[in-house]
Design a protein around this nucleic acid. Structure first.
Lengths: 196, 196
DNA sequence: ATACAAAATTAGACTCGTCTAATAAAATAA
DNA sequence: TTATTTTATTAGACGAGTCTAATTTTGTAT
């Protein structure tokens, strides 16, 4: 998909000018290609570097949650710093130490050392029909507010959810979460949860 | 002790001008004081930050050695990157996870969360008299070459060393290392090992 | 098709950490 | 004490990454 410089700027909290500047620099470094029409695309080298960093990020997230007992909503920010620590072998050793986890705590697949990323079939909760059940496999939004909300609703990776009803007016969904909780969530919410 | 800007520049591999510039900036930030005569001194805030970073560094070194099975001579460089990862509870959680280690793999004390640094009596191996025995408690030089040399001689923290003889000519020492190894080392070597 | 709005891009500036070259100050040797 | 050498300091510049304020391009509604 093509993403506009403005969108990147908003997402990253920097000015559009900075994004354009950076696109230029990354193009010069042959990490990305840029073309008004096709947008920005990762080049071979850029792709590799990017995947390596994502691998680091997700492995560190597992470490922070499992070993240091951080909570779901805290790990992302710390992993964002850890992911840039550079040393050959580091990711692989971490991977071994953690027992070769396949998914990070948010349900995202951890790239293999060869750069391969396991793909999983994921559906937005918002696309599940009335009466059907599913299990949470990942979150699309990793912001603290969202994760804390999930926590509050006892929603975790693996949690079973049944769609009891959908309000036609605004597409809110009435959900049965696990055995205990029955609640209504917004369309926005249902579009931020990935299920299988 | 007072250290000259030039010495810092050499040690850090930057120009003297950079050191002076940085001294100015750190002074403005009230992290250090600087005075031609007294030299540079850490101020309260600077001291705290510095100790916190040392704490991070040493804890990460323990992690890298014990959990990721890195070797003695590799951990320093990686820890130098990890030490700057910032998050309120990170050091404390790491500390708990590692079981409150008191020393890092090079034998240096790990500062407590309150900033306290356990002090240990340490003597240079070069000051041990003929016939006396001692145990290695720390290394003064953490360069790869030195650590690899130690590895080769089977010298580790805790290794027992007996000084069998000292060559008056150049102060080389004949050592009994553990039970197996008997070898002669230079004065420079003996001044890089700390024993109790 | 025209005109307005939104997005992309450029220009010019600022901070940071760094550098080299020039100058000043201090230490040391004669 | 003066000359020489070493060290400290200043001046001016540069690249990186960022910004704001134009300006240009593109998209869209009338």
């Amino acid at each position: 998909m093509k993403i506009s410089p403005t969108a990147i700027a908003d997402e990253m909290g920097v000015s559009a000018a900075s994004v354009i500047d950076m696109i230029k620099k990354l193009s010069e470094k042959k990490l990305i290609s840029y073309d008004k029409v096709k947008g920005a695309k990762l080049l071979e080298r850029g792709q590799k570097e990017a995947v390596a960093i994502i691998r680091n990020h997700r492995l560190w997230e597992v470490f922070l949650l499992e070993k240091l007992n951080y909570s779901w909503d805290e790990i992302h920010d710390i992993a964002e710093q850890l992911e840039h620590v550079k040393h050959p072998e580091l990711a692989d050793r971490l991977d071994v130490f953690l027992g070769h986890p396949e998914y990070d705590p948010h349900g995202d697949p951890i790239p293999k050392s060869n750069g391969e990323i396991p793909t999983t079939v994921k559906t937005l909760l918002s696309e599940i029909e009335i009466g059907k059940s599913c299990r949470v496999v990942a979150v699309k939004d990793t912001s603290s507010v969202f994760l804390q909300y999930l926590e509050q609703l006892s929603v975790n990776i693996g949690t079973k959810i049944k769609v009891l009803d959908i309000v036609p007016f605004d597409n809110s969904m009435l959900l049965q979460i696990g055995k205990e909780i029955k609640t209504t969530v917004s369309k926005r919410f249902a579009e931020s949860l990935l299920v299988d």
